[in-house]
Design a protein around this nucleic acid. Structure first.
Length: 839
DNA sequence: GTCACATCGTCGT
DNA sequence: CGATGTGAC
């Protein structure tokens, strides 16, 4: 059920979002949504008990989509039913059962079409389906978790623990559970709607300083949620008005004032309701979830921390014994009977498991128990669960990625390091400054990745926006969707390893392997530790600086940097007079003596940078506005091929595509979905996609086909709708189609055709608006239906006749059922009569 | 303007 | 499950 009307209510707290903004992140998925949508397509077969895997393939398509953007997915499944929801569940089961019976009956009577509609409504997502998907995911090294109870709480836990930075769902309840970033309405083109908890006050219409998340949650519970029916006559709007009005922090006392505050004298707030309210609140706060890191069940938040009496948690689930809980979370048990169905164990995974053509994700598993297993999750774990030890700057060791090389320990040049990991080094090292520092005139227009990154972070910082794109393929997580502060801090400060400043190089560099916790002692050439006490000799200085340059950029790691000291990034060192020694190595990079690293606050550096480097900033801004391809061209493409082509996690469902190619496609598809007018063909001087279009030749891969098919479908659907109206008008006016004022054409019949997308770029969007959201999902009908009507009315009347394939299967009687308001909404009535008048 | 309730669509070819 | 439409207050 969720919260009725919450998503439209959250319009102001949401923004259009694309998966490309989530690169390098980890995303927890409410798998039920995908399974349910997937099962809908093969509902008949499922209802008849026939064998099918269409729904599984549907889900894997999404998994693949995420992997192709280098996003780590964690699929979360529902577990047992909460007692509080038992009634709702029973009701659902009953209605499904009824639908099944009626469907079967109609099927016997041979009324296939009617039977179909009932059979679709009776699809139930069973744990067997979930397990089927889980098993496919295991083959691909994609993590799955079965929640002890509701997936919602589990998703929220993963999000709050920062194991997953985003949550994908269709259920508005996730907001109440306290997720920070939720992606709704994700489609196969990668577009979705992002709701951020930091913006919730905007939706409530409340000043930020007066806003508390607790208030938001109380508002939602008051409006009616899964655990508590609303008081009669109270919906979101009234609940919001009440919550904003009341000052009383004690909600139990405040609840009594509802009738007075809302002018609803007839309303009675019983003691029972108050108690149930507190229980419902506790259910959201303290539901039992599973912590895959600690491998134990716990509550989403600790009742002691929140001061919640234990008796209120009676609906929030009970704990299982350790072993059962673990196996349930892995998906090995049937959640209801707790009978074993499988015996998979994360610690006993063999590579052979995924043998065959199926490619395995390289993301580290959340189930990797050894916290020293590092990689991404190692970092997560450290930032999450080892905050205390972090103060000692204890770095976790990552597993040896290339044992032969790493044990050897002699090859310490950048080229060697990269080569050891299969990165092509025939070209220059990726982080190499493209234009040497000694050529300042050229430097002002050419930038390395870091520069652009920093500039971008600062530019966005200035504007108070979140960074949108990853431009530096090596700074995977620094950029996208991290708050600006985080981004700039990661670049500016002597950082600890956090999820936001990981990089490929960090993993590649031997530096990472130094265990600083040991004794501060490090061995030979491997010590590239940059500290104020560092004693790099002249002979090792060049090599050391080259490698430490990598390190400093992202993880300036040292146990001996004391508070207040700051080793600033190479970029800033070279730009600030105090930071640079003035010496340059043979790469043209300044060799920075760590002793002279300035102790400056990030803001001070930014200020200095801003005043001194205005031209560079402008140039960088110009560069920022280019597509990734254009940037690469401008800077000279030094990125090793392997990295540029993105990840290679494909399973064959969707071929792994270069991220840039995907972006190109999305740009095209975006413009295709939104526009329903053919008469405007110009793809409005879209500077961003210029070079992407040049790349189109490469774009004809499976993803292309997928995307354009989707586009085609949508277009056909729109056309079908339009045609229905047209038919209606036609019959009403008693006119032949030749006389019909609405222009009909056959364009939509071949929906998947390449190139149409650009032609359909609607004239509805402002040409100069780079943030246009056309074609992206929105929460409100005003944004969906109404804009469409505006599009229609603003443009010349036109209507595409769908192809035969689109008409087939839809009984024409539907057209007769259209209401006048619907017609006028799409502008047909008006237009047709207008045109008819002319005649 | 709100809210409650009923009904539809979700896929895929 | 959300979206949408409709009718009651």
């Amino acid at each position: 059920m969720g919260i009725t009307g919450l998503l439209p209510f959250l319009e102001k707290a949401s923004s259009a979002c694309h998966l490309k903004d989530l690169r390098g992140k980890c995303v927890a998925i409410d798998s039920y949504c995908w399974l349910h949508r997937g099962a809908f397509g093969c509902a008949e077969r499922l209802a008849r008990g026939e064998q099918t895997d269409a729904h599984i393939r549907y889900c894997l398509k999404y998994v693949q989509l995420l992997l192709s953007y280098n996003i780590k997915p964690i699929l979360v499944f529902d577990g047992r039913h909460l007692p509080a929801k038992a009634a709702t569940e029973a009701k659902r089961r009953e209605s499904r059962e009824n639908a099944r019976k009626r469907g079967a009956e109609l099927l016997r009577l041979g009324r296939i079409d009617e039977a179909r509609s009932f059979l679709r409504r009776c699809v139930d997502i069973t744990h067997e389906m979930a397990l089927q998907l889980i098993q496919e995911c295991r083959k691909r090294n994609v993590d799955c978790v079965v929640a002890p109870y509701e997936a919602d709480a589990q998703l929220a836990f993963l999000n709050r623990a920062d194991i997953a930075q985003y949550v994908i769902t269709e259920d508005s309840d996730l907001v109440l559970f306290g997720c920070s970033r939720i992606l709704f309405k994700l489609d196969l083109t990668g577009n979705g709607r992002l709701v951020e908890s930091t913006k919730l006050h905007l939706a409530m219409g409340c000043r930020e300083e007066r806003y508390q998340f607790v208030k938001f949650r109380q508002m939602c519970i008051l409006s009616g949620c899964d655990y508590l029916e609303s008081l009669p006559g109270i919906g979101l709007a009234k609940a919001c008005r009440f919550i904003l009005k009341t000052e009383d922090p004690d909600i139990k006392r405040a609840l009594a004032k509802i009738p007075a505050y809302l002018n609803m004298r007839q309303l009675v707030v019983t003691e029972e309701y108050k108690a149930e309210f507190l229980k419902a609140e506790a259910t959201f706060k303290h539901m039992v979830v599973y912590d895959p890191v600690e491998r134990r069940q716990k509550r989403l938040t600790d009742p002691l921390d929140e001061g919640t009496p234990e008796e209120y948690c009676c609906n929030a689930g009970v704990f299982l014994d350790e072993d059962t809980a673990f196996n349930l979370a892995l998906g090995n048990l049937d959640p209801f009977s707790l009978r074993p169905l499988d015996d998979w164990h994360p610690d006993k995974v063999t590579e052979a498991h995924g043998a065959g053509e199926i490619k395995r994700s390289r993301h580290p598993s959340i189930w990797q128990q050894n916290s020293s297993s590092a990689g991404e999750e190692g970092c997560e774990k450290q930032s999450l669960h080892a905050t205390n030890t972090q103060q000692q700057q204890t770095f976790v060791k990552r597993p040896l990625m290339n044992a032969a090389f790493e044990e050897q320990g002699t090859k310490d040049t950048i080229a060697d390091v990269l080569q050891a990991y299969g990165i092509e080094t025939a070209t220059e090292p990726p982080m190499k400054r493209l234009c040497p520092a000694e050529k300042p005139s050229i430097r002002s227009i050419a930038f390395g990745y870091e520069e652009v990154n920093v500039l971008e972070a600062m530019t966005l910082l200035e504007r108070g926006e979140s960074p949108k794109r990853n431009r530096n393929p090596f700074l995977v997580a620094t950029n996208a969707a991290v708050s600006c502060r985080e981004a700039s801090n990661a670049l500016l400060s002597p950082t600890k390893i956090t999820p936001s400043n990981r990089s490929l190089l960090q993993n590649v560099s031997p530096v990472k392997r130094i265990d600083y916790s040991a004794s501060g002692q490090t061995s030979g050439q491997r010590d590239f530790k940059v500290t104020s006490q560092s004693d790099n000799t002249a002979t090792t200085a060049v090599t050391a600086s080259r490698l430490s340059r990598f390190k400093r950029t992202n993880t300036i790691a040292s146990c001996s940097i004391s508070a207040g000291q700051k080793v600033i990034s190479r970029f800033f060192c070279s730009q600030t007079s105090t930071g640079s020694t003035g010496t340059v190595n043979n790469d043209g990079d300044p060799i920075q003596d760590p002793k002279e690293a300035t102790v400056e606050s990030p803001t001070a550096i930014v200020r200095k940078f801003k005043s001194k480097q205005e031209t560079q900033k402008l140039a960088a801004a110009a560069l920022y506005l280019r597509s990734p391809e254009a940037q690469l061209k401008l800077r000279g493409d030094r990125t090793p091929e392997k990295r540029r082509t993105g990840c290679d996690y494909g399973t064959g469902l969707i071929e792994p595509a270069s991220p840039s190619v995907e972006e190109a496609l999305v740009t095209k598809v975006d413009s295709g979905i939104g526009g329903i007018d053919d008469e405007t063909n110009a793809s409005e001087g879209d500077g961003l996609s210029l070079s992407q279009k040049e790349n189109d030749d490469n774009a004809l891969n499976t993803v292309a086909a997928e995307s354009s098919e989707t586009k085609g479908r949508k277009t056909v659907r729109l056309s079908l709708f339009e045609r229905k109206h047209a038919t209606k008008i036609e019959s009403e006016e008693n006119m032949g189609s030749d006389d019909l004022a609405i222009v009909l054409d056959d364009d939509a019949s071949d929906g998947g055709a390449e190139g149409k997308a650009e032609n359909r770029t609607g004239n509805e969007s402002t040409k100069t608006d780079l943030n246009t959201e056309r074609g992206k999902p929105t929460f409100t009908n005003t944004a969906g239906g109404h804009t469409r009507s505006e599009k229609k009315t603003n443009s010349k009347p036109s209507c595409r006749r769908p192809g035969l394939s689109a008409v087939r299967g839809k009984p024409s009687k539907d057209a007769a059922g259209l209401t006048q308001s619907r017609l006028s909404m799409f502008g047909f009535q008006k237009k047709s009569s207008m045109q008819l008048d002319k005649r």
